[in-house]
C-alpha cells in the first residue's frame, strides 16, 4: 500500500502539468514549442521563488520529469554556482546543471539518426 501513497502524488502532479499544457494548446493559439519554452521558464521561476524544493520533497523525484524539472535544475545549478564561485556562477551554473540531460539527448539523437530511417506517417 505504501508504494501507492508514494506514487499517487507524483502521478497527479505530472498529470496536472500535462493537463494544463494541453488546455493551453487546445484553447489558445499557443504552439507546442512555446509551451515547452514556457514550461522550462516556469521551472526556473518556481525554483527562484522557493516553491519547487518543497514540492520536490513533498511529492518525490518523479516531479522532475516534466520540463519544469529541467528549469528547476537550471535554477538550482545557477544558485549553487553563485554560492560557490560568485558572479562567474551566473554564467556557468545553468549549463552545468542541465548538461547531463542535454548531452544525453544530443548523443542519443545523433546515434539514432545514424542507425534508423524515418518511416512515412500513417493515419
Amino acid at each position: 500500500m505504501d508504494i501507492i501513497y508514494t506514487l499517487l502524488p507524483v502521478f497527479v502532479f505530472g498529470g496536472l502539468i500535462s493537463f494544463i499544457a494541453q488546455l493551453f494548446i487546445d484553447l489558445t493559439a499557443v504552439t507546442p514549442a512555446r509551451i515547452l519554452v514556457f514550461t522550462v521558464c516556469l521551472g526556473v521561476l518556481l525554483y527562484a521563488i522557493g516553491v519547487y524544493e518543497p514540492l520536490y520533497n513533498m511529492f518525490g523525484a518523479g516531479i522532475s520529469v516534466p520540463l519544469t524539472g529541467f528549469g528547476a535544475a537550471i535554477g538550482k545549478g545557477v544558485r549553487s554556482a553563485v554560492d560557490e564561485k560568485g558572479a562567474i556562477g551566473i554564467l556557468t551554473g545553468g549549463l552545468s546543471a542541465s548538461s547531463s540531460g542535454i548531452t544525453a539527448a544530443l548523443l542519443l539523437g545523433f546515434i539514432f539518426a545514424i542507425l534508423f530511417k524515418t518511416r512515412s506517417k500513417r493515419m
Partner: peptide, 28 residues
Amino acid sequence: HNSAAERQFRMPIEYGGQRARSAQWTST
C-alpha cells in the same frame, strides 16, 4: 508527397505532435 511536405512545411516526420481537427492530410 506527405513526408516531403511534412518536412518542408511542418515538423519532422517522427515528431510527436497533435493535428488540429481542421487540419488536412497531405496526400502521397
